[in-house]
Amino acid sequence: MTDFSDALQTALHLLVNLDAGLVEIIALSLRVSLTAVAAAALVGLPLGALLAVSRFPTRRFWINLLNTFMGLPPVVVGLMVYLMLSRAGPLGPLGLLYTPVAMIIAQTLLIFPIIAALSCGVVQGLFDEYHEQLRSLGSRTLATARTLLWEGRFGLVTAILAGFGRGNAEVGAVLIVGGNINHSTRVMTTTIALETSKGNLALALALGLILILVSLLVASAAQWLHTATMHRGRA
């Protein structure tokens, strides 16, 4: 209980004073997670939609694969990215290991199947409702995917939020490929792990609370956007 009240006090103190170290960690966390979400969404949304509206022999296999990869163990992804980016790996010469870019790559690989599989589900539901009408209007596969992505935009925000949640809360992969280097690759989750191992539970809890607050703010912003759009549409 003392730890918890200490954590609250510490969190408030750090936030109110805009502690430079904390701001740097939060900024890097957001930069890594948001960039990874954007990259994963850029590929995952159209791919999920195309899988939903296309019909080809191995379609079910690919959907099952995406669903399976939604639960990819982060440390395994971290290890794979590490092997690719390490000096002996195929991408070693790029010198990306222990940089924020490596962390973004790892998080993108973790988030991509989540966004793709969830968007596939959302678009599939819409496809069942719309496909005869769209075919009747002369819509082909690509146009149908584009149309249904737009029609499902509110459901897809949830898919993107799920991806952001996964990236923002992730520790194993970014620790392996980022190295938790102070002022370089230290993000909120890896700092929490570090401070806990040092016995600095108050600071760890404070960062945990801030992490939850960031997720809450992002989810609230998405909800506000949804509501505002709906109201504008019904006006």
Binding site: Y130, E132, Q133, S136, L137, G138, T147, E151
Partner: peptide, 15 residues
């Protein structure tokens, strides 16, 4: 193509 179009029993309209 669009020389034939169809109107369904329950109108299917975009949002």
């Amino acid at each position: 193509g669009a020389a034939i179009t169809m109107v369904f029993q329950k109108p299917v309209l975009l949002r």
